[in-house]
Amino acid sequence: MKRFFESDLFYSFRKSPVTILAFLVTILIIVTATFANIFAPHNPFDLASLDLMNGSMPPAWYPDGSKEFLLGTDNQGRDVLSAILYGTRISLLVGAASVLFSMVIGIFLGLLSGYLGGTVDNIIMRCAEVQLTFPAILVALLVDGIFRGILPRDAHDNLAIYVMVFSIGLSSWVQFARTVRSSTLVEKSKEYVQAARVIGRTPIFIMIRHILPNVMSPVLVIATINLGLAIITEATLSFLGVGLPPTEPSLGTLIRVGNEFLLSGEWWVSILPGVALAALVLSVNLLGDWLRDALNPKLR
């Protein structure tokens, strides 16, 4: 721990106020969303507690707003703040899980491709190029469509979250694989890898214990930046209605549902989840940018 506080990484963090702010916002969002059941004033999914009498209330700073519903309510009487907290939790979960998924695939294929080279490399990289010709949204739509076709309707709603993770993850492994591959090529030619080969270590051991720790810095940077992207992709899909169902609303779903009330003046139902989404993605991206600069050996 002491080593961390004395490290260059922590130093560059301390020197950048924007990064500190982004970090604090991210932490705030993550903590409140993760423990939404504690922080949220209401449970938006407890249908019994909903009261139509409280429907369509504006935020608390409006004269007819109420302290009980800080950010107002939707037409069902659901507290917007609580819905945002629960929605963020789902957005974060889908984002993080899909990044983790693509990271694992990407690292695995990138290591194989870079270390083994030859035919394996050719096959993996050609697949990656094919994958790249499909935009992330299209892949997600495609996968989602396939699952919709295969799975019965109820099952789909239950499995929607897995489908999302799978389809978003599948569309972004290429970046990880390419980065890991190129770093692996650099590391592979270094003498410590040759030393391990002379000692008689197996390729798997060398890839995992020797090379992997040395290629993790760029992977972490991409993971952070991709987290923002994944959250946006999920929101887009949910907004388009092919993502998470309203029974399990993410930020994107909230924006879509609220969108219907935008013209009737109840802007808070959709704009406020949008603001939360923007704040989350912006701070995560700022963190990613800082991490990229701090870990870039050329700038150090």
Binding site: E191, Y192, Q194, A195, V198, I199, H210, P213, N214
Partner: peptide, 23 residues
């Protein structure tokens, strides 16, 4: 052949900055 190699032969490399895993 591999057993003979691993048992009897070792190598010292040129670049002391690249021949040790930094992690």
């Amino acid at each position: 052949a591999l057993r003979t190699l691993r048992k009897n032969v070792q190598m010292i490399f040129q670049d002391p900055f690249a021949s040790l895993n930094p992690r």
